[in-house]
């Protein structure tokens, strides 16, 4: 990476400390760092979108005679009509085009990319018969747990009937499955957060201060 030595690494180090100063309390150093971050990020996205997509895929082909590209460019520019109250209704044209395409794809993706394979994954191990002959003991138990868990969790989210009797017991089991899953997410979240802290502290101690080798 381009974080080697000289003034740049000092800038990176001091900005890191400016953000950490928030841990003591909110202060101007943190705020300056925060606003620099927002400004730079916005500029970064604009530059990358231009050089990686808008320029090569929209404007270069247009220059080469692909006049169909006028349509997305015009619809794209119509997004800017939102900036004025008088013309803001025009934004509905690009917006509905974009929504139409993405929602259409979403319907198909939810069915063929998620629901069908997920239900297959839940039920197909049982269709093969002889569960315990096909898989080892703990996998077989796991697959039964998986089936019970999916059905009971779905029952918990079924709000059209009062959760009483069999429905009540099943949804209660579902709650315990959800708790295990939330516990798992919590455990993994700790790892994620510590990783980020490790990354920054490692940078401060090695690249900046050269205490660590």
């Amino acid at each position: 990476m381009l974080m080697t030595s000289g003034p740049w690494v000092w800038i990176a180090g001091l900005l890191t400390l400016a953000i950490y100063s928030f841990l003591y309390k909110d202060n101007p150093f943190y705020k300056v760092a925060e606003y620099i971050f927002v400004g730079l990020s916005a500029g970064y996205w604009a530059v990358f979108l231009w050089w990686n997509y808008a320029y090569p895929n929209l404007f270069v082909p247009l220059g080469e005679g692909n006049y169909w590209n006028i349509i997305p460019i015009v619809l794209g520019f119509m997004m800017f009509t939102q900036l004025s109250k008088r013309t803001s209704w025009l934004v509905r044209f690009p917006l509905t085009f974009v929504l139409g395409v993405s929602l259409g794809l979403q319907v198909i993706a939810a069915v063929e990319g998620d629901m069908v394979p997920q239900l297959q994954g839940t039920f197909s191990p049982f269709a093969k018969g002889a569960l315990f002959n096909t898989y080892n003991f703990w996998t077989s138990i796991g697959l039964i747990v998986l089936l019970v868990g999916v059905l009971s969790t779905l029952t918990y989210f079924f709000f059209s009937r009062e959760h009483k009797g069999v429905l009540g017991v099943t949804s209660k089991i579902g709650v315990y499955f959800l708790m295990v899953a939330f516990g798992a997410s919590f455990g993994y979240t700790i790892m994620a957060r510590i990783s980020l802290l490790f990354g920054r502290l490692h940078f401060l101690l090695s690249d900046w201060m050269h205490i660590l080798r």
Binding site: L105, A109, A110, E112, G113, D114, P117, Q118, Q120, G121, L146, A181, A184, S185, Y188, T189, M191, A192, S195
Partner: peptide, 29 residues
């Protein structure tokens, strides 16, 4: 959902720890 569901082939993922628990279901399926 959009690529593997249409074109199949081998797909794997590396996740930040926060996202990882969600993908065990796709591993199983």
């Amino acid at each position: 959902w959009y690529y593997h569901a249409r074109y199949r082939g081998n797909l794997a993922t590396a996740q930040t720890a926060i996202g990882a628990p969600k993908y065990y279901q796709y591993l199983q399926s």
